[in-house]
Design a protein around this nucleic acid. Sequence first.
DNA 1: GGAGAGTATCATGGCCGTATCATTATGACG
DNA 2: CGTCATAATGATACGGCCATGATACTCTCC
Lengths: 151, 151
Amino acid sequence: MILSRTSQYAIQALIYIATQPRGEPVLNREIAAHLGVPSAYLAKIMQNLCKGNLLYSFRGRLGGFCLREEVEKTDLMQVLALTEGKGFTDDCVLGLKVCSDETACPMHSRWKPIKEKVVHMLHEQTLEKLAVAVQSGKYRITDLPHAAFDA
Amino acid sequence: MILSRTSQYAIQALIYIATQPRGEPVLNREIAAHLGVPSAYLAKIMQNLCKGNLLYSFRGRLGGFCLREEVEKTDLMQVLALTEGKGFTDDCVLGLKVCSDETACPMHSRWKPIKEKVVHMLHEQTLEKLAVAVQSGKYRITDLPHAAFDA
DNA sequence: GGAGAGTATCATGGCCGTATCATTATGACG
DNA sequence: CGTCATAATGATACGGCCATGATACTCTCC
């Protein structure tokens, strides 16, 4: 029902980069600070996204990360294929090794259409759409600053 | 996207008990053997289901586990509330602490209806329905015996 | 009281999220 | 041209949680 923290960070980071001016490398440190996530761990995730051909990386001064493909071309399905593993939507709800239309667990027929909806949604959500949504100010990618409630 | 192994075992075990004659306690050992899962670990899960009022347990000779409520009354949502934690469907996809209709992550509006479909499905699937499906022989609750492919 | 069953406690191994530190590459500047 | 700051990259280590295993305890029936 839930994504790994790795996937969450990856998505957040990519959206953040997509909201920044194209072509200017974004620092890992800056992303981590903005999202409020541990920068060392984020660095490893970024590396993974580089190997998965979603990002360019540049070292040294003026270095950082840039999106590789045009933002309209990258959708969440591609991201999650990297962070969760390629066939992460194929698993049986009950954990059966084989659970296909021919021989299935008793939930298969109900679960399948929902899974398809999820996959469709993940394909539909491109970095561009998400970045625009964030830039509009109506949606957030980071936690709210928790005001002083403890007084 | 996936349930914990604990949840998978719990569901499988409950369905198995539901396929057995009512009133006769079922042995943990028997369930574990039939499902092919480690019996010590399953025992702990069963305990949890007892504490959560889904099972009766009886010790000593002729002991074992019986379903507590009538099978039509127990649905998967109740089971998962115990094994995954009560509000396991409330979490934000991106892991935001607060993600409601008022202030949300950019995926919230797309994710919410899917989540509702999942919750509805989990409420609909009662142990009775699942047990009947298994008893019909059309659906499985255990892995296929892998024939000798390695020769 | 002994065998059979669940119950409770502790110990192990793996993976994930995290933290720390050394290494390498690159642009800037004197 | 050399070296220095900067940034990504890589290696290593640690704690927590999950799945598992092992062992001792407790209850109940015969």
